[in-house]
Design a protein around this nucleic acid. Structure first.
Length: 825
DNA sequence: AGCACGCCGACT
DNA sequence: GTCGGCGTGCTC
C-alpha cells in the first residue's frame, strides 16, 4: 500500500496549501472535503484543516508532518463548494484559508487549546525554579489545567512561552493539546415509565402506595394523561409535564427514585419545526403571469435574468412560483436577501407556502444554529422530503453545502451590503451567486426596483435577460413625491428645527388622520459634531481621523469607527471657552425634535444603536405594524423589508447629504435609497406622499426620483461611467496601505505606487488619502486601479501578484499592511 | 495568524 | 549585566 498525502487548506491567511502525510491507520479512510486536525507552525498549534486534494507524491523539499486526527466520517464540504472556493480565492485575490474561514460555520472549526498541568513528581524540581516559574507552579497547584492566556494573566506579562519551555525541560509540567468539539447538540429530557412499571399490576401497586404522596400521584396521573394525548408514544416532555401539574423537578425525581418513571434524553434541532399548515400558492395576476412566463423563456437562453419590478409590484409571488417548480423537481433553491431585509414578514410568507422545507441562515444565528442548518443542507437527498430545501439567507448562505441547486434568487440585487468589506475574502454575493449557479448548471434571478447600473447594463447588452413589472400590485398608486427647498426655508427662517413647513404640514395631516409617518435620516447619533465657535475646534477621536459624534442617551461623544468615547463636555478642550455648539444632526436628535413639534405622537427610532440586540429590530417593526407607533425615525434600515398599510407620509430629511458623498456611486445609491424609502408610502386605500428636503431641489437625481425616471438616471450615469472609466466599463481594484507610522507609510506608498504604475501605467489613480485618513491608530492611503473590462483577468491578476510579491520582498515594508479589494463598492 | 529568533533600551 | 520590547522570517 502506498503512503497517501493530503493537500490541506488551513484556516489562516497564508497563500497556498500544505501537504501532510496520511497515517497508515487512516489510509483509504480519508476523503476530499473532510476535516482533519494537524499541528502547524513552529509552536505546533493545532488547527482544523480541510482536505483539498489526495495524492501519493511525497514532497521533495521537506518532510511532511502527519495528520493527527480525522474528524468526519463523510465529507462536510462537497466538490461544487471547493470549486466555488477556488473561484473566490482567485477572483478576489484572497487565500484559501480566508475563504474557508468565511465559508465554514465557526463551530465546525475546532479550537486547539494548548493547556498545561503539573507533571507527576514535579516537586523534586521545585527548588530549581525562578520566581516566575514558581508563580506558574503555584497557580497550577490549585489543580486545574491552565491556558497560555491564563498563565499570562497570572504573571501579568505577555511572553510566557520561554517559561513554559523551561518548565517543560525541567519536567515540572506537561502540555495537553485539547481539541474541543464546539458544536453542542441540544437535548430535551423526556419522561417514560420504567420497564417494571409498564406492567399494569406493578403500576396499580404504585398508585396505592402513592396515596400518601398526593403531589407525586398527581404528576403520575398527568403523565398518563399526556401520554394518552400523545397517542401513547410512551414518552412525555419533562418540562411540559411539570408545567401542566405545576410541580417541581423534586417531585418528579421522587418518582424516578421509586422506579416508577425514568428519564431519557433525546437530541433535538434548535431550529423550530414549522407547525402551521401550508397553503397553496396564490394565483398570479396578469402582470405576474406574464413576468413568470418571460423569466422562464429567458432562462432558456440566458443564465441570469434581471427582474426590474417597481416596489410592491408583487415580485415575491413570482419568486414563489419559480421556487415551487424547482422544489417540485426535487432541487434546492437559494434565496439571497440583504441582511436587513430578512424579516419575519418574508420568512413567514415563504413558510406559509413551503412549510418545513424553508431554512434561514444569517448573522444573528448563533454558531450551533448555523451548524444545524449546514448539516440539514448537507443531508439533502434528491427526491426526498427535505428540510431546508429552500434556504433564505444573507450573503454567507452562498457557502452552504448545496449539492443540487435548481435556482438562485438574489433579491434587492442593487444592495451594497451584498459586498463583504472586511475581512477577506472581499466577495460580492450577487456576482458569486452567478458563479455558484454556473457550477450547479442552473439559473439566477436578480430582483430589484432600482437595479444596479452594472446589472442594468448587462441586461441592456443582452448578457442578462430582462423582465419588467411596472404596475403596483392591486392597482395601488405610486406615492406623490415633492421636494422642499430647505435653503430657501432656512433663509426665510421658516424651518422648525430640521423640519420644513411642507413636511410639518404633511405630518400633521397624517397624524390627525391616524396615519403613520416614516422619517429617513441617513446618520445615526444625536449631532455629528461639537463645534467650538471661538476656536473652530471640535473634539476628535484619538485613534481615528474623525470628529466624535454626540450620543445624547449615553451623554457621550463617540467615534463611529472605533467606538472610542469620552464624556460630553461643555468646555472646549482646546481653548477652554464655553461656546460649544452642536452641528448637523442624526436620528437621535431628530427623534428629540419630534417630541417638541409632535408631543402627542408615539415615536420609535430604528438605527444601529437601537437594534443591537437579537430581537430589537423585529420588535420595532412589529410595534409599527401594530400601529403602536405613529412616527418611525431611522437610517437606511427603514428602507428595507417593511410592508405597511398605514404609512401616509415619508420624509427624507436631508437628501444633499448622500448626494455629496465622495464616491462614484453616490448618485446611483442616492437614487436607490430615496426610491426605496419612497416606496414605503401609500398602500391600499390612499396615495402616499413623500417629501424630500434638500438644499438643492433641482439636483438631477432628485428630479429623477420625483419623476420615477430610472431610465434617465441610468442614462446619465452610464455616460459618466463611460467617460470617467468606471464600472461597468472598467473593473476597479482598490489597494489600501496601512501603517501606524505616517512616515513609514509614505515610504511604502511611494514604492508601491512606483511598482503599480510601472505595471499598469495611467490606469493607476493615487495615492489618495481617504476621507478618514486614520482609523484605530493606523494611517491609510489608497490606490485605485482601473482596468478595461475586456482585459484578461488572469493576466491582471498575475501582474498584481508579482507587484505584491516584489513590494513585500523589500524588508522596509514588512510592517505595512496591504489590503486588496476587487470590485470595491 | 502565531511563534521563535535576534537585536536594542531600562532596570537591578 | 539581564529582562523584555518588537522587527523579521517561516510554517507542510
Amino acid at each position: 500500500v502506498k503512503t497517501q498525502f493530503a493537500d490541506l487548506i488551513l484556516p489562516l491567511a497564508i497563500p497556498g496549501l500544505f501537504t501532510y502525510r496520511v497515517p497508515a491507520v487512516l489510509n483509504g479512510k480519508v476523503m476530499v472535503g473532510q476535516r482533519v486536525i494537524v499541528a502547524f507552525g513552529t509552536g505546533n498549534r493545532r488547527y482544523t484543516a480541510l482536505i483539498k486534494k489526495l495524492h501519493e507524491q511525497p514532497p521533495a523539499a521537506y518532510e511532511a508532518k502527519y495528520i493527527e486526527e480525522l474528524l468526519d466520517d463523510h465529507p462536510i464540504v462537497n466538490e461544487q463548494q471547493l470549486q466555488l472556493w477556488d473561484w473566490i480565492t482567485n477572483y478576489y485575490l484572497a487565500t484559501p484559508g480566508d475563504v474557508m474561514n468565511a465559508a465554514l460555520p465557526g463551530a465546525l472549526k475546532l479550537a486547539g487549546e494548548t493547556k498545561v498541568m503539573l507533571k507527576q513528581g514535579y516537586e523534586q524540581a521545585r527548588d530549581d525554579l525562578n520566581d516566575r516559574e514558581y508563580l506558574i507552579v503555584e497557580a497550577l497547584e490549585v489543580g486545574v489545567a491552565l491556558q497560555m492566556s491564563e498563565i499570562a494573566d497570572v504573571l501579568g506579562i505577555k511572553g510566557v512561552q520561554p517559561y513554559i519551555k523551561s518548565l517543560l525541560e525541567k519536567e515540572v509540567i506537561v502540555v495537553l493539546e485539547e481539541v474541543k468539539e464546539k458544536y453542542k447538540p441540544k437535548k430535551v429530557t423526556y419522561v417514560g415509565l420504567t420497564e417494571e412499571a409498564k406492567n399494569e399490576e406493578v403500576l396499580k401497586a404504585h398508585f396505592t402506595t402513592l396515596e400518601k404522596a398526593p403531589k407525586q400521584l398527581e404528576v403520575l396521573m398527568a403523565f398518563l394523561q399526556m401520554d394518552a394525548e400523545n397517542k401513547h408514544t410512551g414518552k412525555v416532555n419533562k418540562l411540559q409535564l411539570l408545567k401542566r401539574v405545576g410541580a417541581t423537578a423534586t417531585t418528579l425525581n421522587q418518582l424516578v427514585k421509586k422506579s416508577v418513571l425514568c428519564y431519557e434524553e433525546e437530541e433535538v434541532g434548535r431550529i423550530p419545526v414549522f407547525s402551521g399548515t401550508c397553503t397553496d400558492v396564490k394565483t398570479l395576476n396578469d402582470q405576474q403571469q406574464e413576468a413568470l412566463k418571460a423569466i422562464e423563456q429567458n432562462f432558456a437562453s440566458k443564465d441570469v435574468v434581471l427582474l426590474h419590478g417597481v416596489t410592491s409590484s408583487g415580485k415575491t409571488e413570482v419568486y414563489i412560483h419559480l421556487i415551487e417548480k424547482a422544489l417540485a423537481a426535487g432541487e434546492q433553491v437559494l434565496y439571497l436577501l440583504p441582511e436587513i431585509a430578512l424579516t419575519t414578514q418574508i420568512i413567514q410568507r415563504l413558510q406559509r407556502h413551503f412549510g418545513d422545507r424553508v431554512g434561514v441562515y444569517h448573522s444573528k444565528f448563533n454558531q450551533n444554529e448555523r451548524v444545524e442548518v449546514w448539516r440539514n443542507v448537507l443531508d439533502f437527498k434528491p427526491g426526498g422530503d427535505n428540510r431546508f430545501q429552500l434556504v433564505l439567507g444573507a450573503r454567507s448562505a452562498l457557502f452552504l453545502p448545496f449539492s443540487k441547486l435548481g435556482l438562485v434568487i438574489v433579491d434587492e440585487e442593487h444592495e451594497n451590503t451584498f459586498k463583504q468589506y472586511d475581512p477577506a475574502p472581499r466577495y460580492h454575493a450577487r456576482d458569486t451567486a452567478t458563479v455558484l449557479a454556473a457550477i450547479h448548471g442552473t439559473k439566477v434571478l436578480l430582483g430589484s426596483a432600482t437595479p444596479s447600473i452594472e446589472s442594468a447594463w448587462n441586461a441592456q447588452q443582452g448578457k442578462y435577460g430582462l423582465v419588467k413589472m411596472e404596475q403596483r400590485y392591486g392597482g395601488v398608486q405610486m406615492p406623490e413625491i415633492c421636494c422642499a427647498d430647505i435653503a430657501d426655508d432656512t433663509k426665510k427662517k421658516k424651518m422648525k428645527g430640521h423640519f420644513s413647513p411642507l413636511l410639518l404640514e404633511m405630518m400633521t395631516e397624517a397624524l390627525e388622520n391616524k396615519e403613520q409617518v416614516i422619517l429617513f435620516q441617513n446618520r445615526r447619533g444625536y449631532a455629528p459634531i461639537l463645534l467650538c465657535e471661538t476656536c473652530g475646534n471640535s473634539p476628535q477621536c484619538v485613534n481615528c481621523d474623525v470628529s466624535l459624534t454626540y450620543h445624547k442617551y449615553s451623554g457621550k461623544l463617540v467615534c463611529h469607527y472605533c467606538n472610542y468615547a469620552i464624556n460630553m463636555t461643555s468646555v472646549c478642550p482646546s481653548c477652554q471657552s464655553t461656546t460649544l455648539n452642536l452641528k448637523g444632526f442624526g436620528t437621535e436628535k431628530l427623534e428629540e425634535e419630534l417630541a417638541i413639534y409632535f408631543p402627542e405622537a408615539r415615536r420609535a427610532r430604528m438605527d444601529l444603536d437601537t437594534t443591537r440586540s437579537k430581537n430589537a429590530y423585529q420588535n420595532i417593526i412589529y410595534d409599527f405594524e401594530q400601529g403602536e407607533v405613529d412616527v418611525l425615525v431611522g437610517t437606511q434600515m427603514v428602507t428595507k423589508g417593511l410592508d405597511f398599510d398605514k404609512v401616509a407620509v415619508v420624509g427624507i430629511l436631508n437628501a444633499d447629504n448622500m448626494l455629496n458623498f465622495p464616491d462614484f456611486r453616490s448618485f446611483e445609491r442616492s437614487f436607490q435609497l430615496m426610491s426605496q424609502v419612497a416606496g414605503r408610502a401609500g398602500r391600499k386605500q390612499k396615495r402616499g406622499k413623500v417629501i424630500i428636503q434638500a438644499y438643492n431641489p433641482n439636483h438631477s437625481i432628485i428630479r429623477n426620483v420625483i419623476d420615477y425616471d430610472y431610465q434617465a438616471m441610468y442614462s446619465s450615469e452610464i455616460l459618466e461611467r463611460r467617460n470617467f472609466h468606471y464600472p461597468p466599463f472598467y473593473r476597479l481594484i482598490a489597494f489600501t496601505l496601512r501603517h501606524k507610522d505616517r512616515e513609514q507609510l509614505d515610504e511604502s506608498v511611494v514604492s508601491f505606487g512606483k511598482l503599480l504604475k510601472a505595471g499598469f501605467g495611467n490606469r493607476v489613480l493615487g495615492p489618495h488619502t481617504p476621507v478618514i485618513s486614520r482609523i484605530r491608530n493606523y494611517y491609510h492611503r489608497d490606490f485605485l486601479l482601473k482596468v478595461e473590462r475586456k482585459a484578461s483577468l488572469k493576466v491582471v491578476r498575475q501582474k498584481i501578484h508579482e507587484i505584491i510579491t516584489e513590494f513585500e520582498s523589500d524588508k522596509q515594508h514588512r510592517s505595512t499592511r496591504l489590503k486588496v479589494d476587487v470590485d470595491p463598492y
